[in-house]
Structure formats: C-alpha cells, structure tokens
Design a binder for these strands. Structure first.
Length: 423
RNA sequence: GGAGAGGUGGCCGAGUGGUCGAAGGCGCACGCCUGGAAAGCGUGUAUACGUCAAAAGCGUAUCAAGGGUUCGAAUCCCUUUCUCUCCGCCA
C-alpha cells in the first residue's frame, strides 16, 4: 500500500509514476483524495463531539455523588442527543475509512525511478549477462526427454495422482532436487540468512499483507473449509513473521531464508511454455527475504542479486539479469531484477529468480515498523528473491550438461549428490 | 469433534460500572550515587488517527475482534476469534 501522506501530498507524481506500470490511477486518486479529506473532517467533528460527551459524563458522575440528581438528569438530555448524532458520524467515518482502504489497496506500488517503461517482457532491460552459451549437437535432448531417458522424473505418475504440473521426481532426480535445496540453503546461511521452515498454508491476513490478495486471488490454491491459502512462495509466511511488529533499528537488516514448496494455479498457461519443468503447479524453491532500513534497501537489493548471481556461477549456468519494465513488474514491487538461465536444448532463457524491493508497500500493509535512534517509528523496507527456484535450474542443468556418457554434475553439487554424473 | 478455563501495556500482574491508557513489579532508557560496577535513589518508558507547515501540545480511539446495555464499560450482555486444560481422534 502506498502511504496516504504520499497520496495526499504528491498526487500528480503518483499518477505519473503509476503510468510507468501502465496503470491509470486518475479515477482512484481523485476519489481517494476526496474521501481522505471527508474522512478527516468527519473524524474531527466526531472527536469534538465525543470530547464533549466525555466531559459531560464526568460531570454527571460528580453530580450524582454530590446528590444533585436533578442537575444530572438535565445534562443527560444533552448527552443522549450527542450519542445519537455521534453514532451517525461514527458510521460515516467507518464507511469513509473502509472506502479509503478499498481504494488504497487497488493502487500498485510506485515503481522506482530506474524502472524502464514498457508493456511486456520484451521491454525488460538486460543489465548484465555472464557465461558462454553451450553449443550442443543436433541430437541434444530437451530436459523432459533426458528426464525420461535417465529415469529422473515421472510426469505420467504425477498426472495420474494429481494432474498436469505435478511431476514425480524419482531416483537421482529426487536426489538432485534434495542436493540443490541443501546447496542453496547452505549458501544462504553462509551469506548471513537465518533458516526457517514456515507453514505452507497461510490465512487471509497474511496473503493480503504481502500483496497476493486481493490482486492475485485466482492464482493461489484456496481451501474454503478453513479459509486458508497454499503459499505461492515462502515470501508470504516469512515476510509475515514481522506483521504488526516494531523492530529496533539495531535489529536491521533481518535476513531470513526458507526452503518451501510453492503452489500456483497458473490459470491460463498452456503450450510449450509449460512443457516439462517449465511451469508447474507445485515446485520447490529456496527464498531469501530481507527487512531493512529504508536507506539500505537498494544496497540490499544489489547484494541479493549478487548472491543469486554467485549461485548461478557456482552451478556454471550461463545467465543474464534483466531489470523489469513497468508493465512486467508485480503489483507490489518498486524494482525487480529477473535472473534467467539459458536452457541450451530448448534454446530459451528461463526465469529462475526474481529479486524485488517492495520499499514500504508490504510494510504499510502489514504494519512492519522499526524504531529509529530518535525513538520514532518508521516503516521498514522489505525485499525478497528466489535463491533459487528448482525446476528450471534442474531443466538447465540437465540440458546444458548432457553428453554421450551422461549428465555431468557441477562440482559444487557433487558432495551433496555423492556422484559426478548421472548415467 | 465434545467439555471446561481464559485472552489487560515489551513481559508478569492488579483492577467486577465512574475521572483508568489503566496500580504494582520486571525489563529498558536517562540522571544521581561509585575509582568502576552492582545495589540504591529519582525521572521517563504503548499504538493509531486527527489538529499543526512541523514539533511540542491538545483531542479521539484502543484492555483479543465486532456489536449491545448505560449519562458513563477493561469491568455487564451477545457474536466471532485465538490460547490453554481434560476427553476423543491421530502423524
């Protein structure tokens, strides 16, 4: 949620910046400013009224004690009149607050000034790339064929048990998953993150706080009986650890990491985009999350991008980093870098990580603050990134490292997998 | 799932209709004391919104949440929710 003070004082700028996200906020902003003014006026009116009522009640109490029941009764008339009026005002205030909130929640986060304009992924700006693209022979196989050949994944079983998008990893495929998870977690721990195992189901408040609700309602699996959502990313539970919290300045930055399963309905996806491991309903991911001082968040964003880059270098995967354009960014993000690896047999760049700074957007929704040195409470900044999402990493590893003899395992994974090749 | 008990400030804990944002304690911060520390003493120590250019100050709300009774509610009533204990079920 954008802070109300910004909306109140910098209206034109808000409109301009949201245009970068291809969001026309004119109508919402107009109404919002109107509602905000009305709300404040109503509250002032109500507060004054309640103040009078309160002081009258005190007088009445005193008069009763002094045995002046007649005088007290006279005051009661005024006080009950106030009560009637204030009830109406209270209702108006509630309605205005609700409307204000409903409007606020519809506004996406303001993009950072460095966000390039644009509509689709085509308009993203590649800011760096590293590693050379492997040249595979004509008989190179895509990962789904390799998975079949080496008995690593059974897509059929998954379809039988659940449906498309729920693969069954088996044998070395399952072990490779586990190796990657352990590797990613160990690297995150070495980088100063604390490991957590969060719940995989979250309540409405949590899903709202990180911005999945109401924006992405249809993208999450929902369990109506208990009104819980399956997490689309560990970002949701982990960031929500600090919902309704006031941290001390010296606690910052808070760095958390978690491995979790992620569940996404991916309604509307089809075709080669979803072939094999490219897009799943259930997948594994290690997430890194930071809560930082507002002055430090862009430094932290840089570090997180660097951390993910380091992982990809260690895995010897060619990758590139894209700064997302306004149109391709998520609702809640102020600045996002996508990390893509080259999947050599598919000859495609696959997004394996998305690292974002949300500034105060999530903090404001979840009331995540910190106490400054001067003893004031301020919104903290939140950030998160995948480090990393497993399926596409697996796809690229299988495709890029295939050979006549088998699939070569990168050195860093060998101790975890206890082999150097899948044969 | 059944029965019962309970949710008060960072923590513990008092408070069953009247000046209560809430005693007392702990913790924390600052000051005094000390060679230094501990102890001791003193002062301070919630959040949100509103008012204000801003701060101070002031106003309002908040004792799980929402509603009700009353001139007045932490205190009485209703609903919801969460926690705990016992029973049942169960990895």
């Amino acid at each position: 949620m954008i802070e109300i003070a910004v909306i109140r004082n910098n209206g034109p700028e808000v409109l301009e910046r949201l245009k970068i996200k291809n969001f026309d906020a004119t109508g919402i902003m107009e109404r919002l400013q109107q509602v905000d003014a009305e709300r404040r006026q109503t509250q002032k009116h109500l507060d004054d009224m309640l103040a009078e009522s309160k002081s009258l009640a005190k007088d009445i109490g005193r008069l009763f004690k002094e045995g002046k029941a007649d005088e007290a009764s006279a005051l009661k008339e005024r006080t009950s009149a106030i009560k009637k009026e204030s009830k109406i005002l209270q209702e108006q205030l509630n309605n205005l607050s609700r409307e204000q909130n409903e409007l606020m929640v519809q506004l996406p986060n303001l993009p950072h000034e460095s966000v390039p304009p644009g509509r689709t992924a085509e308009d993203n700006v590649i800011v760096s790339s590293e590693g050379s693209l492997p040249e595979l022979g004509d008989n190179a196989m895509p990962h789904w064929e390799l998975a079949q050949k080496y008995q690593l994944i059974d897509f059929e079983w998954g379809t039988k048990i659940t449906g498309a998008g729920f693969p069954v990893y088996k044998g070395l495929g399952a072990r490779l998953q586990r190796a990657l998870i352990a590797f990613f977690l160990d690297e995150a721990i070495d980088a100063g993150y604390t490991e957590y195992q969060p719940p995989l189901l979250v309540n409405e408040d949590s899903a709202f706080a990180t911005g999945q609700l109401p924006d992405k309602d249809g993208q999450m699996y929902h369990i109506p009986l208990d009104n819980l959502y399956l997490i689309p990313t560990a970002e949701v539970p982990v960031t929500n650890f600090y919902r309704d919290t006031i941290l001390q300045a010296e606690d910052l930055p808070v760095k958390s990491t978690a491995y979790s399963l992620c569940f996404r309905r991916e309604a509307g996806s089809y075709g080669k985009e979803v072939r094999g491991l490219n897009r799943l309903h259930q997948f594994d991911k290690v997430e890194i999350v930071q809560v930082t001082h507002p002055d430090k968040s862009y430094q932290a964003l840089k570090e997180m991008v660097e951390h993910v880059s380091m992982l990809l270098r260690k895995l010897k995967l060619p990758y590139r980093v894209a700064r997302l354009c306004g149109g391709d960014m998520s609702f809640a993000a102020a600045l996002t870098y996508d990390m893509e690896v080259f999947s050599a047999a598919q000859k495609r760049w696959l997004e394996v990580s998305s690292v974002s700074n949300f500034e105060t957007f999530q903090s404001n929704r979840m009331k995540l603050r910190f106490r400054t040195g001067e003893g004031k409470n301020e919104m903290a900044h939140t950030l998160n990134g995948s480090a990393l999402a497993l399926p596409r990493i697996m796809a690229a590893l299988l495709e890029n490292n295939q050979s006549e003899k088998g699939i070569n395992i990168p050195e860093v994974l060998q101790p975890y997998l206890r082999t150097d090749m899948i044969r």
